[in-house]
Design a protein around this nucleic acid. Structure first.
Length: 605
RNA sequence: GUCUUCGUAGCUCAGUCGGUAGAGCAAUUGACUCUUAAUCAAUGGGUCCGGGGUUCGAAUCCCCGCGAGGACACCA
């Protein structure tokens, strides 16, 4: 008994000491808060006030939620007896205070709902401070939990009548204010730089952004289900690779200390998945984050996601069928139909898709049959349609460039292009009947490649020759060519069954399926250059040359953040400025003198 | 990498010919017991991205950076 009393005293003591320390911290921050904007400072002051009133702005215990905004808005109109005892939590997005009554909009993970609170109900007694000092002074962005019942207001909006509320998190930064009326959005938060750098803000204020990412996940889940239903095995292969291969791209290079070796971040996982087919799996796939050290654009991010699939005893025709079926299913899962609006076009993913050989496509769009041309004729033709040609380009590269220039951007509806030249397809099996071509196809949609697939090359001797040809190309100045992966060749020499392989760009497909113009819109955190950071010297630097602590934030306010910057000041001017700031901020410090300032400056190295 | 557009208050933006930096929302204070882009009144808030230059005077004109968007190049 005595022991437990001691414990209680100890805990009480502990609580007060901690709270006191916290208050001190808050006040201190408030004092040195000269770098904060006015609105941020006001929010911190409010936080300190709340704390002083005994309100914990960051409570630890869970808050029971028994309903979502969406549930209420969907089901309440059908049955007004529902939701008479709800508990819900969310972020305050909008406040309309009418004196003793207030309407807030609360945003939870699936939507928004209006909440209604009345002073005399929240504060039945004489003391109205819970409403006047706390509820009314909550800010946009604060997260609260409320309990009450659902009703319809006089103007017909389904709302929650608040009987009690609890602050769950005080927000210290003002959110962008986006207003909506009749589906028209005012002051939309759409500066791309801020949206991508601070995606959390983007997600809070732009509900359609959340939709995009939910669709992306649904896309991935649908694809995974589709593949699992066919009993293919989802696997994981190395991201850190001693040799990079499986695509033509420049890699990111890194270093392992203990092994004392260079490693590369994978540009593709193709060669590892094929080793697994050699090992005896009939179907393997991986959603693979790949990394390519190249230029960025609205279609390219340094890291991106591909799904690669390899299935034994199949060929590329079979794989075409799988792709159109799978992507068709994805469209239906996301949109309820195979027709998807993308920009100004409606794209229909309903199988079967159009199929052209590469030569057919070029002939279709240019009117010229290039299949019989030699390298020189082809080079002339390429130049004539505006392709930049250089000496490192072989025949295959030329065909590829001609296709890119003349055809790709015109292919809006999903179309398979197949039978690619052997020179640019070092991992694809030679065509069963046409020399110089490979059994490879790409699906092009909305003018962009969305996937790439082959009947995989499983002839180890041909494979070695092709990889060596790539090295030869490398010597001609084509820096994308690959390194020979001896272990991969060794695996092929044990024998890989005939296999169909596929790589499908998840980001590109997401762009199309969500009607997004930029890859940055389907990546939560697209790569950005770092934000420029101000260099701010620590307090000690200033203290060391004899500056009183109170003046340090003032100097920072004047944008004097380092001793070097201080040294460059005109002492007379600084004297005036410091005097001015002292008055303006009503600082409780002795005035500075010119002598003192000169003394500071003289001590700087 | 090249070309091009942009960078002003917490947010969205205006700023004329180079002459005291503005609006709406947000914030603060006050009024308001069913509002909804709530309303009404008052108030505060600025490194005009950074650094140079021209000028009596620069948010504005010129140069050099930084960051972002777009196009091209690159990327099968």
């Amino acid at each position: 008994m005595r022991f437990s009393n001691c414990l209680r005293i100890f805990y009480l003591y502990h609580f007060y000491v901690k709270n006191f320390q916290y208050l001190c911290t808050l006040k201190m921050k408030a004092d040195m808060g000269l770098e904060l904007t006015e609105q941020e400072q006001i929010r911190r002051d409010k936080l300190a006030e709340f704390t002083e009133m005994g309100i914990n702005a960051y409570p630890a215990e869970l808050y029971e939620v028994n309903v979502t905004s969406k549930d209420i808005l969907e089901k309440y109109p059908q049955d007004n007896s529902l939701f008479q005892d709800v508990s819900i939590a969310g972020r305050i997005m909008h406040q309309r205070v009418m004196g003793a009554v207030s309407f807030y909009e609360l945003q939870d993970s699936v939507g928004k709902i209006q909440i209604y609170a009345k002073r005399d109900e929240l504060c039945p007694g004489e003391d109205k401070s819970l409403y006047n000092k706390v509820y009314k002074r909550l800010d946009i962005g604060d997260i609260i939990g409320v309990k009450g019942f659902v009703f319809t207001t006089q103007t017909g909006e389904i709302s929650i009548h608040v009987k009690e509320f609890k602050l769950l998190c005080k927000s210290l930064r003002p959110l962008p204010i986006v207003k909506t009326k009749d589906d028209k959005v005012y002051d939309a938060f759409q500066d791309p730089e801020q949206r991508y750098r601070q995606r959390y803000v983007d997600l809070i204020v732009n509900p359609h952004v959340k939709e995009t990412f939910i669709k992306r996940t649904l896309l991935v889940n649908t694809m995974r289900d589709f593949l699992n239903k066919k009993s293919y095995l989802e696997v994981e292969t190395p991201i850190l690779q001693p040799l990079y291969g499986g695509a033509a791209a420049r890699p990111f290079k890194t270093y392992h200390n203990k092994l004392d070796m260079t490693l590369y971040l994978r540009i593709a996982n193709e060669l590892y998945l094929k080793r697994l087919i050699v090992g005896g799996f009939d179907g393997v796939y991986e959603f693979s984050k790949d990394f390519r050290n190249e230029g960025m654009s609205r279609f390219h991010n340094p890291e991106f996601t591909q799904m690669e699939l390899y299935v034994a005893y199949k060929d590329y025709y079979w794989m075409m069928n799988l792709v159109e079926e799978m992507v068709g299913e994805i469209a239906v899962a996301l949109h309820g139909t195979t027709k998807v609006q993308v920009g100004d076009n409606i794209i229909d993913f309903k199988p079967p898709w159009k199929r052209y050989t590469m030569y057919e496509a070029i002939e279709h769009f240019t009117g010229t049959d290039i299949s019989g041309m030699d390298e020189e004729e082809m080079s002339r033709f390429a130049k004539s349609i505006g392709v930049e040609v250089d000496s490192s380009m072989g025949r295959g590269k030329l065909i590829d460039e001609i296709f890119g220039e003349a055809c790709e951007s015109h292919l809006i509806q999903p179309t398979f292009i197949y039978d690619y030249p052997v020179e640019t397809s070092p991992l694809a099996k030679a065509h069963r009947s046409i020399p110089g071509l490979t059994e490879r196809f790409e699906a092009v949609c909305n003018g962009k490649e969305i996937c790439n697939a082959y009947s995989e090359l499983n002839d180890p001797i041909d494979q070695r020759a092709r990889l060596e040809d790539q090295l030869e190309l490398g010597k001609r100045g084509d820096n994308e060519s690959m390194v020979v992966d001896e272990d991969f060749l060794r695996a092929l020499e044990f024998g890989m069954p005939p296999t169909a392989g596929l790589g499908i760009g998840i980001d590109r497909l997401s762009m199309i399926m969500t009607n997004s113009a930029s890859i940055q819109d389907v990546l939560f955190f697209p790569q950005m250059k770092p934000e420029p950071k101000k260099i701010v010297a620590p307090d000690e630097d200033f203290l060391q040359i004899g500056i009183e602590k109170a003046w340090i934030p003032v100097l920072r306010k004047l944008h004097i953040n380092t001793l070097q910057e201080l040294k460059e000041q005109n002492p007379n001017q600084l004297l005036n400025q410091l005097g001015g700031m002292r008055k303006k901020l009503k600082l409780d410090v002795d005035t500075v003198t010119l002598e003192k300032i000169e003394n500071w400056i003289s001590k700087i190295e």
